[in-house]
Design a protein around this nucleic acid. Structure first.
Length: 696
DNA sequence: CAGTGAGCGAGCTTCCGCTTGACTT
């Protein structure tokens, strides 16, 4: 029988550690937090030192029971939850639930390697109460803010709304950006490109107007451009200066959660949620057909660190040496500079073995899994490779009062670029641009002058990628919350997503304005940063957590009271649809009822006409050829029916596909499972099905 | 599985952060 129980947070981690520790150890997982403030009550006694009331999280009872039973059977218990603030708190809650005596029960390791785990086991320590208290302060503060502000919004704006330290700032970013865009006034400007030739043959190369009469050219309109063109009449284009230099370009660091979500959005068009779902599959393990069962292909996926375990770096060097040769291996181990404000509980996201090349897994991975694994693998490999070296040339060409500049860039040594190039948010990407051999004093032949009109562009709307990036930079939210936060602000109707961009709704604007007016501190991007400073003080034992919370709550509750009195209930404008009332001809408006949105006549109660709000899915009905629309049951469950109901009664729980079963002719439906999306024939006797995702 | 919005008024909504799974209707 095992004599030491080790508790970690994730079952996949438990499995890996089990391999390192042998028979005397029993490894169990807590599946994250097991105790928390109650969801349906306030749970904080503000009258008595903000005493939190913790209960076992709904659904986690069986886990707690299992851990208790395991604890009974073992002589020693080690709490190996993650080495960060939340992990310390989980350990503390576990020690209470398992009624552990005070003592050295806590161990930490921040990489899952044999050596790190075995070393950690030798050095147990007591639970760090200061760190636990910092977590309690964070937790209670978030509860106070969320559960006081949200009800205010129910009363003043609309029931069911929410506000919080993280989500409200995210909405604010999107609203502020939209207003910048609306206020933006485009300004006209012109550019001039000369296409030039050296010698008799070869292709023309472009040179941009760089200076005019020694100054930065400012060409605001067509007239000014004409004047510039006139000044070039009959001018000779002479090469005045050639500068060559070598530029080194280093690879991007391996992925964190945030950068993985950004890059998967840019390169694979994945949402943050989809990225995390697929990454979770890769982390939990894929059955590769070997005898050992599922194999975890990547390290832990919720991390803010770019740190890499030394063993993995050494393995990467071996790999690079063999696959690419010594010139692709940097001299020393590559270190990426880390931000100071990260928690660094886990390594960066990397393949668990660099030798498992994506191509070799094509047949066992789904298309999504393959593409994401490929991205992670390439990014990691590149991160350990030698820098790329570019030869850049800058050529100045004078013509009349104008100075043109051409630049060329040639890859001298590709280095990491052989494997991976980072995506960008803009449209243009740096490309290799060649220039012909030129010499100073050479006179070039002008092929053409290309004047072009431009307008300054407003700042771009946020996408998932840029929003996650910004939130991370501001320290708002954590790796485990970026994707859920995005879903929350969409669900509440504060923003919508169009193409890949976030656009605030009227509701989003109203709520942000209300919060800005009365709670400017909380909705400020600095709020979290300030909170983190306070938490650091608590962690250092310099401040008691209750005092930190009290200093926030005093002013906050006074502002709450005033806001409750001062704010009048806000009328949100009705959304007017294009559709007309069939009884009186007025434009129908969108109403929200018990079962969600529907269209109603604005003449209520004189005219009581209503009709369902139809959401088409671009598929026609197999019975009558009408449009299929998505609807909801009384219980809120989504289903699909024909727009011609009740004349046509076609209906389906699953989303109908655009074609029929090749065997029995019944309309196929889409069904998604963990392995991807399948088309299924709903006719039970037929049961034909096919994978919609391309194989691999 | 095809409802609906006033009024009445009970009972409900809501935060952030840690982790995975699921009544195949």
């Amino acid at each position: 029988m095992a004599h030491t129980l080790v508790i970690v947070e994730s079952p996949a981690k438990a499995k890996t550690i089990g391999k390192f520790l042998g028979r005397n150890f029993l490894i169990k997982s807590s599946m994250g937090h097991v105790r928390d403030l109650p969801k349906s009550q306030f749970g904080v006694d503000v009258e008595h030192g903000f005493e939190p009331r913790y209960i076992t999280i709904r659904g986690k009872g069986a886990i707690v029971k299992d851990l208790r039973e395991a604890a009974q059977k073992c002589q020693r218990i080690l709490l190996a939850t993650d080495p960060d603030r939340e992990g310390e708190a989980i350990a503390w809650h576990l020690s209470h639930l398992l009624e552990l005596p005070q003592g050295p029960v806590r161990i930490e390791f921040n990489e899952i390697t044999r050596n790190a785990v075995q070393e950690a086991i030798k050095k147990p320590r007591e639970i760090d109460q200061n760190r636990v208290d910092a977590q309690q302060a964070r937790r209670v503060l978030d509860r106070l803010v969320g559960y006081r502000l949200s009800p205010l919004l129910w009363r003043k704006v609309r029931k069911g709304l929410s506000a919080g330290r993280v989500q409200s700032v995210a909405v604010r970013l999107i609203v502020d950006r939209e207003r910048e865009i609306e206020a933006f006034e485009p300004e006209e400007y012109w550019s001039l490109t000369a296409w030039l030739l050296s010698g008799d043959d070869g292709e023309a190369f472009p040179a941009k107007l760089y200076k005019y009469a020694g100054e930065e050219p400012e060409i605001k309109n067509e007239d000014q451009m004409r004047a510039v063109l006139a000044s070039l009449e009959g001018a000779a284009y002479t090469v005045t200066q050639i500068k060559r230099r070598e530029r080194r370009k280093n690879p991007a660091p391996p992925f964190t959660t945030s950068t993985l979500q950004q890059e998967a959005s840019r390169k694979l068009n994945f949402t943050a949620r989809r990225t995390m779902q697929v990454a979770q599959q890769l982390y939990e393990g894929i059955d590769l057909g070997g005898s050992e069962g599922p194999v975890g292909l990547i390290t832990y996926i919720r991390t803010d660190s770019t740190r890499i375990a030394a063993v993995a770096q050494l393995e990467a060097r071996d790999f690079l040496m063999e696959r690419f040769g010594p010139e692709y291996v940097p001299e020393g181990l590559r270190q990426f500079k880390a931000r100071s404000d990260i928690q660094d509980a886990h390594e960066a996201i990397r393949p668990t073995s660099i030798w498992r090349e994506p191509e070799s897994l094509k047949n066992v991975l789904t298309r999504d899994q393959f593409r994401l694994y490929n991205l992670i693998w390439e990014r990691f490999v590149a991160s350990q490779m030698q820098a790329a070296v570019m030869d850049t040339t800058t050529v100045d060409i004078s013509a009349g009062p104008c100075l043109f500049r051409a630049s060329g860039s040639v890859i001298k040594f590709p280095g990491y670029l052989r494997v991976y190039q980072e995506g960008s948010d803009g449209e243009g990407r740096e490309q290799e641009q060649r220039l012909p051999e030129l010499s100073e004093g050479e006179v070039l032949r002008l092929q053409s002058l290309e004047p072009k009109q431009h307008f300054t562009q407003p700042p771009p709307r946020y996408t998932e990628a840029t929003l996650v990036k910004t939130m991370e930079e501001l320290g708002i939210g954590r790796p485990s919350t970026y994707a859920p936060t995005i879903e929350t602000i969409l669900e509440r109707g504060y923003v919508i997503r169009e193409q890949k961009q976030f656009i605030p709704t009227e509701l989003g604007r109203v709520v942000v304005d209300l919060l800005k007016e009365h709670f400017p501190d909380i909705i400020d991007v600095e709020f979290t940063a300030h909170m983190e400073q306070q938490l650091d003080e608590i962690e250092a034992g310099k401040l008691p957590w209750r005092q930190v919370v009290a200093e926030f709550y005093g002013p906050f509750s006074r502002v709450l009271e005033r806001a409750e009195k001062e704010i009048a209930a806000i009328e949100l404008p009705e959304e007017v649809s294009e559709e007309k009332c069939e009884l009186c001809g007025r434009n129908l408006v969108v109403k929200t009822g018990r079962f969600g949105k529907f269209l109603a006549c604005p003449g209520f109660p004189e005219c009581r006409f209503t009709k369902p709000l139809l959401e088409t899915i671009g598929v026609t009905c197999p019975k009558c050829g009408g449009e299929i629309v998505a609807r909801r049951t009384k219980k809120g469950r989504r289903f699909y029916g024909c727009q011609n109901y009740p004349e046509c009664d076609y209906v389906s729980w699953e989303k109908p596909a655009g074609r029929d079963c090749p065997h029995c002719g019944t309309r196929m439906v889409e069904k998604s499972s963990r392995h991807g999306v399948r088309l299924i024939c709903p006719n039970k006797e037929c049961a034909y099905e096919e994978m919609v995702q391309e194989a691999r």
